[in-house]
Design a protein around this nucleic acid. Structure first.
Lengths: 208, 208, 208, 208
DNA sequence: GAATAAACGAGACGGTACGTCGCGTCTTAAG
DNA sequence: CTTAAGACGCGACGTACCGTCTCGTTTATTC
């Protein structure tokens, strides 16, 4: 390994202080007004210590706010719709928090421009979310609720993609009835796709 | 009127050159690397001429790339699913174009921060899109395909929100089969919500 | 010329404020502790306005403190020694001032590294000083005090080079008796060189 | 002794490597562009090993390039002028070397700011130089060439101060004829001052 | 036609954050 | 206690871009 032969090791207090200061300042002033100098000063840390760890302000903020926030355990309500509703409610609380609403749009523009950060986002945050969908779908298949399986990424997209668009692109207020509707629509959509991929040829899904 | 008492009128060649240069430069270097000075130089125009027309770089880029691109006429395929599929295919072509993929993430972060631009975005671009959904839903209700009506904004969100997330947040490649799946899922979701709001208790076709 | 076709002209108040602020801050904190941000803030000016005018902090300080400070008229005492003594006393006052003692060493290290600045220094400041020596020598020759002429640059070096070394390299205190000695020695040296270049072969200047 | 109570003794190869690397790098990139990290890497040494020996980058460079270069034995030509000429020629070779021309200006600015280094410079390097002048003057007095004695520091200043100014402040090329002139002028100046301090009224060696 | 008034190209302006760099110090593990 | 490696706090640097502001000039409309 490279990091261990000689040399002063990274000080974990510095790691912690940087992330803590980042979180506090995002809460106080919002992401766009966040400056690296501010973070350094508030954390009692030099700017070099920050840039030694993160390639940009955006990566720092991403790690501070989104990375390794463990998902809560799944509800296990016994039905696909119940599971999805519980899941989307959990995410809604998280995604609609003021800090997230400020950070997400900026992060989105950064992901488009910063491949390393995008990879990191895909591999950690997103993968954890999709794993939750995979488990819910698996259970529904086992229960016989779904005729076939379905790509968890598609399920994730149908439910949380719509929610993310509403929150971060359209900047709409999202209340609980709306979340409920999203869960219902996603359940129907997932069911339809599971039927379809199972062999049903009806492209146009014509009734009857 | 304000624009009419004396003075030299705006030069329409300037309008055109600004927008043209903006489009070309976004294609070349992407929105984030776009600078107003660059646009001015490339258009053979002073910066003041730009700021006389647009309040910010983001508004300029928005107008140059998204505004007043008239929606094509609806397909009128005779079924809800057919109409939605035609619509999402049209949008997919537009939204997945390189210029759009570069601009959209930056625009998203700007909308979150710039209320005037957000209002403008909602009132023009978004309203036109939702009107298309309203018409499709209306026709489906008239045909008896839908048990009740449904908020066009929700329909828009289910179909295009998912697509936008895939393209602009997750930066995924999106191919036609995926678009087809999205249309199928949205059709099912819209149908379920229409049933639900009409009074029918069968949420996700739950037994009992 | 380039500076006049179109464009907002440089604001002379900005020029003045920058130089004024530079002078004040050098007096307050000394040159080494001077920062460009300080100057910008104190002058009510953006940093870009400074860097548009000067390539570096050192050039700014040079222009602010040394450039175009007109030489006082020559004394015209009627003798070479008297003229040189008057001249060196004038320079001593100027060169031993605290601001000069702080700036000069830093400027010296900058001149060695910055050819543009060196050229500017040679052509303006130094040339004016040497012109004064040229005139004094010319008058001495006219009076018959000197057997031949002598390069003013050499005369300048003999008198002010020694003084500059004492002040800026050796950091010695220099009092008036010492200045007087320098003038006496320079007078003798100039006289000897004038004899020598006039044809006298006595390399070793052996007495009589 | 302090260096003797237990522990690992200093490695003399480290001393040598540091100074050697410093000299090589100054030759390559010049003093201002020299960094301590560079020296450490090039010498295969930690930065701490450098700062345990020298208080600053400037002191390190000073020791590496100027310190303990023993003066060559004096020429003993039998005349004041001959001795001074031999001396200045020796110094000229040394002072005009590329490494010296690069280091000196930076050292000058450091001496002005760093009293410890200045003291060290005065007590070692400068004192040795002035001792040489003292001996030359003493011999000249003994030979009867000088009417009285003269402060060796003043003699040093007249000859080498001028030379240093030419080389390090004015950045002039200095050739042998110019060195010869400096020696002649210094001889005349020293002679005049010796007369003057001896009681002779002839200020500028007024013609007898 | 002369006067008015706004738009024009050019580019300087204040402000602000960025990311880099170097210094001199400190902290490891190894010897 | 010294070593090599390298992280640390600090703080200045020079760059970049934004959106505004002045110039002197051009171009319609209104008297």
């Amino acid at each position: 390994m490279k990091g261990q032969r000689g040399g002063r090791p990274r000080d974990s207090r510095v790691d912690h202080n940087i992330l803590q200061a980042t979180r506090e300042l995002i809460d106080e002033v919002g992401y766009p007004a966040l400056t690296v100098d501010q973070v350094a000063a508030h954390a009692g840390v030099g700017k070099a210590a920050i840039y030694r760890r993160y390639a940009s302000k955006a990566e720092m903020a991403f790690v501070a706010t989104m990375h390794e926030q463990p998902l809560p355990p799944l509800a296990g309500t016994g039905s696909l719709h119940g599971d999805l509703l519980a899941l989307v409610r959990t995410f809604h609380v998280r995604m609609a928090a003021p800090a997230a609403r400020q950070l997400a749009p900026a992060l989105i523009s950064e992901l488009a421009v910063n491949p390393e950060l995008n990879t990191r986002f895909q591999d950690t945050f997103l993968a954890a979310e999709q794993a939750a969908f995979a488990e819910i779908i698996e259970q529904a298949v086992a229960r016989g609720e779904l005729a076939g399986t379905i790509d968890p990424a598609m399920a994730h997209l149908l439910l949380l993609g719509s929610l993310a668009s509403a929150l971060y692109i359209l900047n709409l207020p999202v209340d609980d009835p709306m979340v409920t509707d999203l869960a219902a629509a996603a359940t129907a959509g997932i069911t339809a796709l599971a039927d379809r991929h199972h062999g049903d040829p009806g492209e146009a899904a014509e009734p009857r």
